[in-house]
Write a protein that binds this DNA or RNA. Structure first.
Length: 576
RNA sequence: GCUCCCUUCGUCUAGUGGUUAGGACUCCGGCCUCUCACGCCGGCAACAGGGGUUCGAGCCCCCUAGGGAGCGCCA
């Protein structure tokens, strides 16, 4: 969904909080809406936006104002602050944020089926792009030739597509900044390696795996954090030649020189400060010549003009490295935002034992895209409404400021709730897909629609639907305990009477109950439950009359006969 | 080991010094109803603990506990 910011001018919402000692003053002004009066003239300047609000505030002289913020915008753009004082001398800050299109990306490694945590990342990035009228890019980070597989990339694209996500640029659809697989971009990286080497920001490192491990161990043992010791930093040409002559193949390391700390404004966590001493020199090109994550990820973001990098918390500490790298290369630095990771229902990191951890598994289990999306929209993110949202409505309810900093538990109860909602919104055609060939074969075509409408509120997954197909058109499973109880309680007279009423194939539920009532005197639950149990094999489900209409006379007769047989076998026949 | 981050009902969360701490899911009760579900109405249920600061703390500061992340030729 694309919305240009000029046509999408919803009223600005101003929240005003008052401040004072008196309880009489403790009421809260909720919010005030301002329709931008100059919207029709096209471009609206910031001062035009702020003026009516300021006039209002000054007019509201009964209030002591501390802070007044414009919160209409969905994400942080250019921030315009205007400070002034009320007649009471309290300072007021107006903060207007100008909407800017965000170019976002999702950059997975195709080393397996896409994990639900990554799916949420992709989803949030798409929402951020859509809510600002920007672009969403999909980039495959397949630099690890060992683990990356084409089949996983195909599966990833298919699964995300199934979910309903759409990207404007990607490996399957191309785009202006291609190629979109890093394995095909190595040529592009050469110029940047060279630039870093020439500027002295990168150097070859000949340390072996063992040497590095040993060094790390030593540092750890002496209570210091494990960092690259800088062994190869100051190697002279001769030393390098010697190492090379020994057959050592160097990696390329980025040099993090001592200096001021690296600072950036995180979109969700606020200011982040990292001491340069805490960042060791890191590898940007492996011995086999392939690009390391820090490098290719950051360089590609810049080359693809990504404006906002929204990713999981696990990348926070990577960010200063990437910023340093981009600055050294004189490439543009995107805004970064790190939201909390998703954890299992026990608070531990998501893993196999928490059940479905890949999107593929959820899909196979029968979960619907809308259910997953509605759940994710509210996991670690506060949507401004609790009701169901269609995918195309979601961008306007996404807010980067509403992203959480605390880990969010992935809760199946909540997912099931959204699944229920999703099933209720399925079209008949979509429900029909759930039937499968075996189900379709059993149902008379003219009844399909009525059947699906009838049972949908009792269905969560395709298997449930299949069960109802069997109830109405197929064979019943062995009756459960509570069903048996009802059948035995009713006795044979009960079912003989029902069977007699079925002589008329068009007999309604009322016809049946009338006949049984007359014969046995049963009423209420004693009357209906045995009938339900006998005819459907279960004590729950849609309206019995509605089901009877769809069932064939044969089926009904057969089931009553079975109930009769069971009743005769088990019940104590009346002595008279 | 070191650095950083997080902690409000069982769960997802609202909350930016004065709130009867709000909503959603789950659960329970009621209505509807032949049953279950749907729907509607209602209920249970939380500020991790301890110290400060303040007239007043869920919100600010410190400590403790618990959880998470990072410190790779993984991404």
């Amino acid at each position: 969904m694309r919305a240009s910011s000029s046509t999408r001018m919803s009223p600005w919402v101003v929240t005003i909080r008052n401040w004072g000692y008196s309880l009489l003053n403790s009421a809260r002004i909720s919010s005030v809406d301002f329709a931008p009066s100059t919207a029709s003239t096209g471009k609206v300047s910031d001062s035009d936006r702020i003026r009516p609000i300021r006039n209002f505030l000054i007019g509201a002289s009964g209030w002591r104002l501390v802070d007044c913020r414009l919160t209409e915008c969905k994400f942080t753009g250019k921030v315009v602050d205007e400070k002034f004082s009320t007649p009471h001398g309290f300072p007021v800050t107006l903060r207007a944020m100008e909407n800017m299109p965000a170019i976002t990306r999702f950059a997975p490694s195709p080393t397996g089926y896409v994990h639900v945590g990554n799916v949420r990342t992709a989803f949030f990035n798409q929402l951020l792009a859509r809510c600002s009228g920007g672009r969403f890019i999909l980039r495959s980070e397949d630099t690890d030739a060992e683990r990356s597989k084409q089949e996983y990339l195909d599966a990833l694209l298919a699964d995300l597509h199934w979910l309903g996500l759409r990207w404007d640029e990607g490996p399957d659809c191309g785009g202006p900044s291609g190629p979109y697989c890093q394995s095909e971009r190595s040529g592009l990286y050469e110029v940047y390696y060279t630039r870093l080497i020439d500027s002295g920001d990168a150097y070859p490192c000949y340390c072996s795996d063992q040497e590095l491990k040993l060094s790390r161990k030593r540092q750890l043992a002496s209570g210091r954090p494990p960092r690259y010791a800088g062994t190869c930093r100051h190697l002279g040409d001769q030393e390098r030649a010697d190492k090379a002559a020994q057959g050592r193949v160097p990696v390329l390391r980025f040099k993090v020189t001592a200096g001021d700390s690296v600072t950036f404004q995180d979109l969700v966590r606020g200011e982040q400060v990292f001491a340069r001493d805490d960042i060791g020199d890191f590898v940007i090109r492996r011995a086999d010549g392939s690009a390391a994550f820090f490098f290719s990820n950051a360089v590609d973001d810049a080359l693809m003009q990504v404006s906002h990098v929204l990713r999981g918390e696990d990348h926070v500490a990577n960010t200063p490295r990437q910023i340093l790298l981009l600055q050294a290369l004189d490439l543009s630095v995107p805004r970064y935002g790190h939201f909390s990771l998703m954890v299992g229902d026990d608070g531990a990191p998501l893993s196999k034992r928490h059940g479905a951890s890949s999107l593929r598994e959820l899909r196979l289990a029968g979960y619907l895209p809308g259910a997953i999306l509605n759940h994710f929209l509210r996991l670690g993110h506060k949507a401004d409404i609790d009701d169901w949202l269609d995918l195309d409505q979601m961008p306007e309810h996404f807010n980067i400021d509403a992203l959480g900093r605390a880990p969010a538990r992935y809760d199946m109860d909540q997912l099931r709730h959204w699944q229920k909602e999703a099933v209720m919104r399925l079209s008949i055609a979509e429900l029909e897909d759930w039937l499968g060939d075996s189900g379709r074969a059993l149902i008379p075509p003219e009844q399909t629609g009525a059947f699906l409408e009838l049972v949908r509120s009792n269905v969560l997954f395709p298997a449930d639907l299949q069960a109802w197909v069997d109830v109405l058109y197929g064979d019943l499973p062995k009756p459960g305990e509570s069903e048996q109880e009802w059948l035995q309680q009713a006795g044979s007279e009960f079912f003989r009477a029902a069977l007699a009423a079925l002589e008329n194939p068009a007999a309604t539920l009322k016809d049946l109950t009338d006949a049984v009532k007359t014969a046995t005197g049963a009423k209420g639950k004693q009357l209906f439950m045995p009938l339900r149990a006998a005819l459907t094999g279960r004590t729950d489900g849609p309206g019995l009359q509605e089901m009877l209409v769809l069932m064939s006379a044969d089926t009904k007769r057969k089931r009553l006969q079975e109930a009769l047989a069971l009743g005769q076998k088990h019940s104590r026949e009346p002595l008279i």
